[in-house]
């Protein structure tokens, strides 16, 4: 889809500090000088075309539940197959191929350390490949949204 100046403002200005008022979309609309219905339509279009995943909350990692980053080294010809096995776990998200000997990277989120370990063990068993468990020990950069630079 073609992004208009309004789309860009919406995307840049409302990644954080979303209004906590009964009619937040109306407040955004007033801010942008348009109607509430237009804001809802734009968000719906942006979601539909896959530019945004949702309007919602980004939680602080490891604050609720436990998570880790996992790397696996998989023969390239088996990558799709292993990725499918991994994706079947509801605890898995952000599963990406990366250009490296460790070529499959994903995040596992679980309700407890024990649950997390169970999931890792199962992934290892089902895929037949070792998992490298890379838990976060310290966070230096806080995700407060992303300043988009338009071409």
């Amino acid at each position: 889809m073609e992004l208009t100046a309004l789309h860009r403002r919406l995307l840049n200005e409302f990644q954080r500090d979303f209004p906590l008022t009964p009619q937040p979309f109306k407040e955004i609309a007033e801010n942008l000088g348009i109607q509430e219905q237009d804001v809802l339509q734009m968000l719906c279009d942006l979601q539909e075309s896959g530019i945004i995943s949702r309007t919602g909350a980004v939680l602080r990692p490891n604050h609720v539940g436990v998570s880790t980053l996992v790397a696996m080294s998989v023969p390239p010809e088996k990558l799709d197959q292993v990725a499918r096995i991994v994706n079947a776990f509801p605890e898995v998200n952000h599963n990406y191929e990366r250009e490296h000997e460790y070529n499959l990277w994903f995040v596992v989120i679980a309700s407890s350390p024990k649950h997390l370990q169970t999931v890792l063990d199962r992934i290892q068993k089902k895929t037949g490949h070792e998992v490298l468990d890379l838990p976060m020990l310290q966070e230096y950069h806080i995700d407060l949204g992303f300043e988009l630079q338009w071409k």
Binding site: S53, R54, G56, L59, V64, G65, S67, A83, R84, V86, N87, P90, E91, V92, N93, H94, N95, Y96, E97, R98, E99, H100, Y102, N103, L104, W105, F106, V107, I109, A110, S111, K114, H115, T118, V119
Partner: peptide, 21 residues
């Protein structure tokens, strides 16, 4: 150091919390 560019995205969605094993 190493730079790992991303290739295919196999899955990307909001995290599901509180699922129990």
């Amino acid at each position: 150091y190493d730079v790992l560019f991303s290739g295919q995205c196999f899955k990307q969605r909001g995290a599901h919390y509180f699922k129990t094993a």
